[in-house]
Design a protein around this nucleic acid. Sequence first.
DNA 1: GCGACGATCATCT
DNA 2: GATGATCGTCGCG
Length: 202
Amino acid sequence: MNEQKLPLSFYLRDDVVQISRDLIGKQIFTYLDGLLTSAIIVETEAYRGPEDKGSHAFNGRRTARNDIMYYAGGVTYMYICYGIHDMLNIVTGPEGTSHAVLIRALQPVDGLDIMRERRAVYSDDKRLCKGPGALARAMGLNKTHNGLSLLGDQIWLEDRGLEVPEEDIVASARIGLNIDSPYKEIPWRFYIRGNRYVSKWG
DNA sequence: GCGACGATCATCT
DNA sequence: GATGATCGTCGCG
């Protein structure tokens, strides 16, 4: 039933920026505790391992938290930000590299009622998955899901054939980076132009 | 619709 | 002991 799953080869490519862009328009699914939710990826950010000061793996940094980033692509990297929010990243590249894509916003498709219950804050569906912390919550994901295979049956991605025209994919500076580096301005954030589910314009 | 602000704690130094 | 790849609330007008 899930033969449209993105293959391992999609994640093993070395160009995390290209992968970040390619992920726009793909559909992400979680099946956790018997609950299925899915949504279209509308906003991502690329984090390019050792040379990227914005990355947890900058300068080859490797700790208990980010260890999974060095694994072969096709697994999740989950971590907690500001002590409260769980973040979902897609690990990419061959084993030994440390690139990852942060998923920043989703357009809900399946399991809206489940998402509403998990969020229990907004009745406004546009905000269910608006922002990395929000979407992880809505999809039922937290730090305990670190390192899950994206080819398993708990979380996976599919290409449902949604075509996002190249000119509708906007590239801009990444959000929330408190760094002093040219990488702060480099346009490694991608989102769908005009999409109401994107966390922020600009 | 937007800016300011406080929450809150795992992680790293 | 300081710091976040953030979020929701409040006040504005």
